[in-house]
Structure formats: C-alpha cells, structure tokens
C-alpha cells in the first residue's frame, strides 16, 4: 500500500518518538498501555527498581534497555552506560549490587571492532564496581532491523538495612535536595558527537557508577536519605516533577545553585534547550533530612564521582506537586514535565 494511503487509514494507532522521551507521552503510555495490563503492588510504585521481600534480606530488582546512538561517544559507550545505568538504579533503591544480567540485540553486519570496544567497556565498568554478570542472552537481527547494538541489563541488589526511610513517600517538607554533580553532560556529549550541529565543544559523558559514595552515605546516614533518583531521560526537571507528584510536596530550586558546566550551558543556549531537561548518566538527585545535610555533603565531596555536588533546593509546603525555580534574574517559573522529545535515543 502506498505510504500516503497507509497513513490516512490509521488514526494515530502507532508508536511515535515522544513515547520514548521520559516525558508526558511516556507517562501516558505507561498509564494507558502498561499499568492496566501489568499492574501489581511492586510495579505500581514506578520506582527505579522493585523491592522484593525475601525471608531474610530484602532484594532490589531493576531493568533498563539502552539504544543510544552513536554506540561510542566521548566519555563512554553503550556498554559502560548499560552497566552504570543499572547499578545506579540499584543504588537509588538503597541497594548494594548482587548480580547483573546482560542481553544483547545485535544487528547483522555490526563491526567486531566496535562490538569488542563495547564489551571491553562493559568489563571495565563491572571490574570498577566489583559486580558480575551472572546471566545473559544474545540475539541477532537482520541488517536494517536494528541500529548496530541494543543492550538490556537487569540487576539484583541487597537493600541496605538503613534504607527504610528511602522512597518518594518519605520526602517531607524541609528536605534539602542534592544533585551529585553538574547536570546535562551526557546528553550534550551525545548531541555533539552526532556531529550534525556544527558545534565543537569539549564535553564528555558523565556515565559513572555511584555505588561507592552512595554506599558510604547509606552506611553512615542512610536513615536521613529520603529519596533518590537518577536524572537520566528528561533530566533533572523530570525527576523533580516525578518526586513532587508522588510525594505531594512542592519543590523549589535555585537556578544559581544548579551545577551546569559552562560548555553545556553554552551549547544548550545555542540550541534553545534548557539544561534542566538534558540527561545525565552518572548523577543522582537525593532528598535528605536537612539536619544531616552538612555531613552528607562532606561525604559526597570526598569521592571523585560526586565532588562537584551541590545543594540545589528544598521540599516546601506551598504549591504541592509543582516544581518552581527561583531564576537568577529574580523571577520564579514553573519547571514542567518535558513535552515532546528534543533529543531521541541518548541512552
């Protein structure tokens, strides 16, 4: 059937790109297509991973798929991204990784040189974190049916005994909000690497596992950590909106306190994109008991992967469910969920 005819025959019954954006369309997709079919108490929380009760230890279980293009980019590859992403989701559940799974979907004709580089980076990320892949799967599809390589990783971790205050429901008014480093590096690096912008800037992906600093926090101040989530797709703005909505507090952040590298700000400014919506892959947003903020900051600053952390705002009683930003210009504005997809396939 000619394309024009096909389109006029269907009434939008197809997946469009924004469904994968992490923004509003993703939320609608989850709420209308996935939850009605798969709802259960553990899934409905929509956290970074599920908490499983066992006889003794509590387990955290999480899964994530990676479709980034290009496969290799400054600061990393789809391989270490896939490992670090899942490790960070476990960390966000307050869990120490126990084991990972690895599923590869490869396109016929993918260069072995590229694949080996990806596999090497997986190995390096695993070694760094001291975690093993204990199960896996590989599929190959015909040329043209995938874009080089897609990866799924799942992870199981043991939940720290100090994590019982962790989860958006435990966010309370007055909590300080911390981000563990400058935001937007990963998304910007990918944009630049795609090379069709005619902009050159020295920006590397921030992909890194945060198990060490977050593990130390758990050990010492775990009961003062109220919620954690990593600002990947949709960026910091999306995570804050999710948190505001599921905890029903208001959130206020100060533009001047949000760490953004000059290079990232400049690229975002040129393209008309707000850095608050650009993905990071090695950052965590943490809601903490304000009485312990100072001590928590000290610990984070002592690890290289979180030394550039910042306290960016607070949970407030006003405007529950909404995120507001005090601009450095002295105004206030709403930070809404992302609409559309400025940048598809970044992770």
């Amino acid at each position: 059937m000619p394309l024009a005819k096909q389109i006029s025959d269907t009434k939008k019954k197809f997946i469009t790109m924004p469904v994968g954006s992490g923004g509003k369309a993703t939320k609608t997709f989850i709420n209308t297509l996935l939850l009605p079919r798969f709802a259960n108490a553990r899934l409905n929380v929509l956290g970074d991973g599920a908490l499983l009760d066992t006889s003794g230890d509590r387990l955290a279980f999480t899964t994530d798929s990676f479709v980034v293009s290009p496969l290799i980019f400054p600061g990393g590859s789809i391989g270490d991204l896939a490992v670090n992403g899942t490790l960070n989701d476990l960390a966000a559940c307050g869990a120490k990784p126990l084991a990972l799974s690895l599923s590869l979907i490869l396109e016929e004709g993918l260069s072995l040189v590229v694949l080996e580089e990806v596999l090497d980076s997986i190995q390096a990320a695993l070694n760094k974190a001291g975690v093993e892949i204990v199960t896996g799967d590989t599929k190959v599809v015909e040329k043209g049916k995938a874009d080089g390589c897609y990866i799924n990783t799942s992870g199981i971790g043991i939940v720290h005994q100090n994590s019982r205050n962790l989860g958006p429901k435990n966010i309370s008014v007055g909590d300080d909000i911390i981000v563990t480093g400058p935001i937007g590096d990963h998304g910007t690096a990918i944009m630049l690497e795609r090379g069709n912008l005619g902009i050159e800037a020295d920006v590397k992906s921030d992909t890194v596992a945060l198990a060490e600093p977050l593990g130390a926090l758990m050990d010492q101040y775990g009961l003062s950590l109220h919620a954690m989530r990593d600002p990947t797709r949709g960026g910091l703005a999306t995570v804050l909106n999710e948190m505001a909505e599921s905890s029903n507090v208001g959130i206020e952040i100060d533009e001047s306190q949000v760490p953004v590298r000059d290079e990232v700000r400049a690229v975002a400014d040129l393209l008309g994109i707000d850095p608050l919506y650009i993905a990071s892959e090695g950052r965590m947003v943490i809601f903490v008991n304000p009485e312990e903020t100072e001590n928590i900051v000290k610990i984070l600053k002592s690890y290289p992967e979180s030394e550039n952390m910042a306290v960016i705002g607070k949970a407030v009683a006003e405007h529950p469910g909404f995120v507001l930003q005090n601009t450095s210009f002295g105004g206030q504005r709403i930070i809404d969920l992302l609409t559309g997809d400025p940048l598809p396939r970044i992770c």
Partner: peptide, 17 residues
Amino acid sequence: RSLGDAKAQGADVRIVY
C-alpha cells in the same frame, strides 16, 4: 496529523539546524 506522524509511518523526515 503532523510531520512527526508521517515520520512514524515511514516518511523520511529529518531535523536540520
């Protein structure tokens, strides 16, 4: 419909700067 819808159905629509 939009150009995005046409793209989802197979039209080769590309963003340029």
